[in-house]
Simulated scan of single mutants.
Amino acid sequence: MELKKVIILGTTQFSVMMCSILESEGYSVYAYSTYKEYLNSNFFMGCPVFLTEDLVELMGGVENFMILNTIGYSKLNTIRERTFADLKMREYDIMTFISQKANIYTDKIGQGCIVMPGCFIGNNIVLGESNVIYTNTVLTHDISIGAYNFIGANVVIGGNVTMDTNNFVGMNSVIKNRVSVGSYSIIGCGSNVIASIKSYSVYTGNPAVHKKNILDINSVNI
């Protein structure tokens, strides 16, 4: 069966990496896309760049392509969240990418998620919309994760963990079983989380401790 063309939303290094992964797994990347306010060139990495606002007209209808949202963790994923909502409003076919090289034991993965190669996602796990689960991350079992979270490479999350929305979990972190993570919080790289995480907070260290509150999401630079 012929695969649909994929248009990658975003023109960043993450977008380029996702293009390589898609093509290595048999997808056809047709073009990149960005919004008019961010357009710097009509070509990127040898591919055309289309305006996101005009994709339906340019491509002849939403049935002709899928779009992969590669907007990342800027401002605690709120830009990714707004982009996802805009794509749905425009009735674009938003792609959920689950790598063929990931081990998946749940069927409850929300629309627009990216699950990268090497991930293990166990049983009784629910992923909400538009999460990014980076390479070699382990979600053990009985975990509930909301929407618009970015979980970095080599993270391990124990069983019976709940995570709300718009969080960033740094690479090589561990979240022990039976804790909860609020919303709009940052867990620093290499942290060992042994107690629940409050919303709008930064936690780092082993064991992870509260470092500061997040007062303005727009000022967050990860």
Rank of each mutant, 00 (worst) to 15 (best):
K4T: 02
L51W: 13
E2M: 12
G26Y: 06
L127Q: 09
S99A: 12
M163Q: 07
I186F: 13
N218R: 06
I98S: 02
N131A: 02
Y32D: 03
Q13G: 14
A208F: 11
N123R: 12
S183M: 10
S219C: 07
Y203K: 02
E23L: 10
Y184A: 03
E37V: 00
S191K: 03
M59R: 09
G122S: 07
T70K: 11
S28G: 00
F65S: 06
V202G: 00
E91S: 12
I79N: 08
N166C: 13
N218L: 03
E129H: 14
G46N: 04
V220K: 01
I7E: 08
M171E: 08
N124H: 09
Y38N: 15
D86H: 11
S144H: 14
E63K: 15
K36Q: 15
Y200D: 05
N192T: 13
M171V: 02
K5M: 15
I187W: 15
A153I: 07
A195K: 15
T70P: 06
T11V: 10
C47V: 10
S74V: 01
F43V: 11
S196I: 07
F168Y: 14
E57Y: 11
T204P: 05
D164I: 07
I109D: 05
T52S: 08
L58K: 15
N77S: 13
D86I: 02
E57K: 15
F44T: 01
F50E: 01
N42C: 06
S24P: 05
E2K: 12
V174S: 03
Q111N: 14
I114T: 10
N131I: 00
V209N: 00
P207Y: 05
G46T: 01
